[in-house]
Nucleic acid binder design. Structure first.
Lengths: 245, 245
DNA sequence: TTGAGATATAGACCGGTGGTCGGTATAATA
DNA sequence: TATTATACCGACCACCGGTCTATATCTCAA
């Protein structure tokens, strides 16, 4: 076999890319090391030169995810013109906007991430992301408490709830997407309701007037779901797609 | 090898028992089928007669857990003398009380369940438990809304939040328990604060006056943690234990 | 220019895994 | 009693994650 040598960092990134694709496609457990090294076109020896174990590969992947996610909202975190409520809303809105704007492959990612065989992968990413986002959120909330905008005695606890709610939004969305096109209108309504609940819950937990926290504009759930289905024409076209399949 | 034949249901239960012990001890992945069948004293063939796969065994175990958990609070669910708030508080209190009263082996169970290697097992149990508890909680909340005791437009969503908070309490507790004895007082304080936050959050989400929801009496976290450490004498003895170890 | 590490790659090999299969002893049924 | 269904056995299998030895290629000081 010809020996191919490439720049180590490129190799590592490519390995992560291939692993990501395979983990998402088949799940962490079911994607074997042999599959991964075959996809990356390297040998076992080369793999174990870059990563200590399959587990370490997973960890590195989770960290890369978390890094990317945090980088995506850095400008909001750093924006000096935002007050705590504005910053919090901007963050929630960014997560909302990401759901709509982002390229379809990222959508596929999230959808995939919630499949049961990806539990382990998901958990690692979530853990890494929490570790990144938690201090940011805590800082915002503490600032808000200082300013008198928020009222709570446990900023860390509230930050965790914010993340839980954010996650739950994804979760519920993914569940809804898994349903048939026929149920889509019902699913959208339920989702929209759930988002409203999270908004009001956060308002009240933070001691804000109802309506202060905005996770998404009314109707954004429908926008997300139709956009994701690559279907700008709305439910009608979606039904056609369903009939064809 | 002598062929031993037993009542099928007993065999199945025993298999579940052994699997539970081994899964909790080593985690789902690390506990091998060979270990399990060795512990149960049966052959591979016999195992695959009872379960289609290792995965199916896990699923059956999770369902058994959920069934037992639900049975443990059935008398509260059925009590005709409780109003919705009382019933909800009774359920939360039961979960609290269970943490204190329950035999040490149950404690070990929960502690174990939160270890990272038990993620898969934990997730399955949690899923099964949610499926059992969700309708019960939804029913209570809907009743409360009808009575005018609660105010919310999304009982299903609130039920999910209640379960999330309940779970988070366990989670945070487990994390605190993992820390050293020296940090215990700090951990207890943080936990106590977090429980208060969840109480107030639920109050407000349900449109109740602050102080209506009671997950635990003040000080219950300390009671839980000292009880769990098999240490009725309190922190002093715990420190001694730490010094010895 | 050389040659001695350090680094990057290859792939045979290993113990162990979850799962399959052909077979057999026992229980239930007719 | 004959037949079928059930309970059980254990050898066997493909493949898994991981180790190891060998070797090709890079780096850089002498």
């Amino acid at each position: 076999m010809p020996r191919i040598i490439r720049h180590p960092e490129l190799r590592r990134e490519e390995l992560l890319d291939q692993a990501q694709a395979l983990f998402l496609m088949h799940g962490y457990d079911r994607a074997s090391l042999n599959d991964i090294i075959a996809a990356a076109g390297i040998s076992k020896g080369a793999f174990y030169h870059y990563f200590a174990s399959k587990e370490a590969l997973l960890e590195a992947l989770a960290e890369r995810f978390a890094r990317q996610a945090l980088a995506g909202v850095q400008k909001i975190v750093d924006d000096p013109n935002l007050d705590p409520l504005g910053r919090l809303n901007a963050l929630l809105a960014a997560s909302r906007q990401a759901k709509i704007d982002t390229a379809p492959e990222a959508w596929a990612l999230f959808e995939t991430l919630f499949r049961p065989e990806n539990l382990v992968l998901f958990h690692r990413i979530n853990l890494a992301a929490s570790k990144s986002f938690s201090p940011v959120l805590v800082e915002i909330i503490k600032q808000g408490v200082e300013d008198g905008a928020f009222r709570t005695f446990d900023p860390e606890g509230v930050a965790e709830i914010v993340m839980q709610f954010g996650l739950a939004t994804y979760n519920v969305t993914a569940k809804a997407l898994a349903g048939s096109d026929a149920d889509m209108d019902i699913a959208i309504e339920a989702l929209e309701k759930r988002v409203r609940l999270y908004e009001i819950a956060l308002d009240r937990i933070l001691g804000l007037p109802d309506g202060s926290i905005r996770i998404g504009e009314p109707g954004f759930v429908r926008a997300v779901m139709t956009a994701r289905r690559g279907n700008p024409a709305g439910p009608a076209a979606a039904s056609k797609r369903a009939a064809r399949d």
